[in-house]
Every structure is written in C-alpha cells, then in structure tokens.
C-alpha cells in the first residue's frame, strides 16, 4: 500500500490525489495503481466476509468497479480508506444477501461450543490465518461477527441489514465468538 512504502504523509496524499485524478479521467494506469495499492486492504475485508479468496476477489472486483464508477463523488479532502471500506463492506453485504437463499442468515445452528470468555485465545496464528478462521464460520455467524466486531455495526443495524432480529444477531455473535475461539484453540492444540 502507499502507506506502507514509508513515504511522508504529504507525498502519500499527493500521490493518492494524482491517482484519483487519473481514475476520474478513466485512465487505466491510474486505476491499476489504485487497485494495486489497496488490494491487500480490500482483500482483508472481503476474505473475512466471503470465507475464501476466490469469492473475495470477485466481491473485491465488484467493489472496485463501484469505486471507479463513483470516483467522481469521492471528496478528495476526505480520507480515501473509509470510503473504500464502506463500499467494500456494502459489496460484501450484497454478496451475503445474494447467497442468503442458500445459507439462512437467521438460523442459529446448535454448535457444540464452549462458553465464551473474555480472554483472548492462546494461539500462534498469523493474521491471514485468523482471517481464514473467521471466513470458516458459517455465513450467519461470519456476517454478524464481521459487522459487529470488526466493522463496528450495532445489533440493530445488523438486524436491519441482514433481515434478522436483534436477538438473533446477538445470539449469532455469541456463538460465532465461541466457535471461533474453539477453532483457534484447536489449532493451538494441534500444533502446540
């Protein structure tokens, strides 16, 4: 990412400004530059919602298509990342809804899980592996966990977005955390 190249902030901003201006002119080179620079960030969002990289790339591309189509509306004086993130999360929600007929978002499956605790699980997983674990949650759990824990939505908003009740959202979150904790601990158990 641009941020990670160690350039001073002003230069980063200037570079991003130029790239966005290029994108506004539908310049393919600028589009590729923007895509390349924010690919990792975008993937880190999409993977945890979709559960696998193939679907994540598809959703990511849908999101970037919206970004390029609406780049004129982006306020250059505001940070780009939150704008991109909002578009990507919306794309992910669209993806979840599209697949909702195959996976019931309101279902609370009876998973045999441990009681959730406040403590962090003891693990030796990389960040990507943790995201991969999140992606392995069932669609109903995954959606609620991501929206609530990582993207900061409230249960009421999640319920509205996913078409479920607030109590279902809360229950799914509790179980998602329990399942995730269990998966991460198992990993520790297997490799520890």
């Amino acid at each position: 990412m641009v941020m990670e190249r160690g350039l001073p902030l002003t230069k980063i901003e200037k570079l991003l400004d130029l790239i966005i201006k290029g994108c506004r002119e539908n310049d393919r080179q600028s589009q590729q530059e923007l895509y390349r620079n924010f690919y990792s960030y975008a993937m880190s969002i999409c993977v945890r919602y979709t559960g696998n990289e193939d679907d994540a790339v598809e959703v990511l591309n849908d999101g970037f298509l919206k970004v390029f189509a609406n780049i004129e509306k982006f306020d250059i004086n505001k940070p780009f990342k939150p704008w991109l993130r909002r578009i990507l999360v919306n794309s992910c929600i669209d993806h979840i809804k599209k697949n909702a007929k195959h996976s019931h978002l309101a279902d609370i499956t009876e998973a045999n899980v441990h009681q959730s605790t406040e403590e962090a699980p003891d693990h030796n997983l990389s960040y990507q592996e943790i995201l991969s674990k999140i992606g392995k949650l069932s669609p109903a759990y995954r959606a609620v966990f991501n929206l609530y824990v990582i993207d900061g939505y409230k249960h009421q908003e999640i319920a509205e977005q996913l078409g479920i009740t607030v109590s279902t959202s809360k229950a799914n979150l509790t179980r998602a955390k329990a399942v995730l904790r269990s998966m991460m601990e198992k990993e520790v158990y297997q490799y520890g």
């Binding site: 990792s40 993937m43 880190s44 969002i45 993977v47 945890r48 959730s116 605790t117 406040e118 403590e119 962090a120 699980p121 693990h123 990389s126 960040y127 990507q128 943790i130 995201l131 999140i134 966990f145 824990v149 990582i150 955390k177 995730l180 904790r181 991460m184």
Partner: peptide, 15 residues
C-alpha cells in the same frame, strides 16, 4: 474482549 481484539488486529494488519 481478547478475541475481538485479535480479530480486529488481524483485519487491520493482514497482508
């Protein structure tokens, strides 16, 4: 909680 912290950190720092 700890799990949430790990998840958020992973989401922010994964490459």
């Amino acid at each position: 909680d700890g799990l949430e912290h790990i998840a958020k950190e992973a989401a922010e720092k994964a490459q």
